[in-house]
Simulated assay, not measured.
Amino acid sequence: MSEKIYDSLIQLVGKTPLVRLHGYEKLHGLKAHLLAKVEYFNPIGSIKDRIVLRIIEDAEREGKISPEKTTLIEYTSGNTGIAVSAIGAMKGYKVKIYLQDGTSQERFDIMKAFGADVTRISDVPEIQDALKTTNNDFVAATNILKQHIRDRQAAGENIFFVDQMLNPLNAAAHHDTTGREIWDDTDGNLSAVVASVGTAGTTRGISDYVKGKNPDVKIFAVEPSADDKYLTGIHNFTDVPDERVPINIREKIYDEVFVADKEGAFAAAQEVAKTDGILVGISSGAALWGALQIASRPEYEGKKIVVVFPDTGLRYLSTDLFKG
């Protein structure tokens, strides 16, 4: 018998499974086939493991950062910060996280457990001022933080901004891994992919890869309304000024947009936990709600629809997600 031993959890990032949602299909009387890309099988529990590993290792190859010398910094609604904290710990980096307000306590606690220095955005006055004038816009806050980091770098601090919002390696990681896996695992036999939009790196990367293989595959993007305060981790991009649209989705890479609300997203997450035993978070619930709209259309009867589940519901137990 040969040993199967990994040197690090880093080696386990990617290759997550596609799972048929038989119970959810039955509950809603669907004739389409819903396939969930279950990203909590990544070793740190979310789809963000992919992009963080790619960004950090690329920066290492280029000599931009080095363990025990560089501090990694990120602004996050949670999952990217958790991945930065964990991978930073594995590689020997100090980590500073700025955490979006309104996120679950679990996310804060997990990052602290990995040794990160975590600050909620409500404790950063200059970012709070930006948020007050932009309806808590994630992109606006990122831009303010970026200038704050530039000032610190100019003062000689050895810090590196992961910058999931603008770093092109975000979409590249999903093109090279997530999109490729979806295509390979379905043997190219799929009709649509549905994903919630945060930084839009997932949507952009998958779209570029899958449509590069078959332009007829439809890409559906799910967003919250502009004034939504409940669907944390995803971003409105159709009814905001151009400068507040995530850069990955400024070019139209999708075929249709669905606007999710708390009721639909929460109900979908609650239902799939009971029908298929898959416990997922808010952005997954929003994506599944969007997939339900598509799967209910007659033209998708007998066809495969992939829906991306970014993370586990275990990071939302302190919220109202599963209390309904």
Rank of each mutant, 00 (worst) to 15 (best):
E181V: 10
N236L: 04
L279S: 01
L53A: 14
T202P: 05
A273W: 09
I47P: 02
K64C: 10
Q11F: 13
F237Y: 15
V193N: 01
I5L: 12
V222Q: 03
K262W: 14
L34D: 05
E62M: 13
A172T: 14
I51S: 11
K48V: 01
R204E: 13
E263T: 15
E74M: 05
E57V: 05
E68L: 08
D255H: 07
G45C: 11
Y209R: 13
L99H: 10
L34S: 05
A268Y: 06
G14A: 11
L72F: 05
S85W: 05
D117N: 08
G88F: 09
V139Q: 02
V84G: 05
G277D: 11
T232K: 15
D163K: 09
D101H: 10
G264H: 14
A130C: 07
I206T: 08
P168R: 09
I110L: 10
S2Q: 14
T186E: 02
G23H: 02
N79A: 09
P43Q: 10
A113I: 12
N79P: 11
S296G: 04
F237D: 06
I44L: 13
L314C: 01
A113P: 08
L18R: 09
T70Y: 03
G78A: 06
G302W: 05
E271H: 10
G115N: 08
A36K: 00
L279M: 14
F161G: 04
A86W: 07
N42K: 08
M111Y: 04
S207E: 01
V222S: 00
Y24I: 14
A267R: 10
G156Y: 04
M111N: 07
A171N: 05
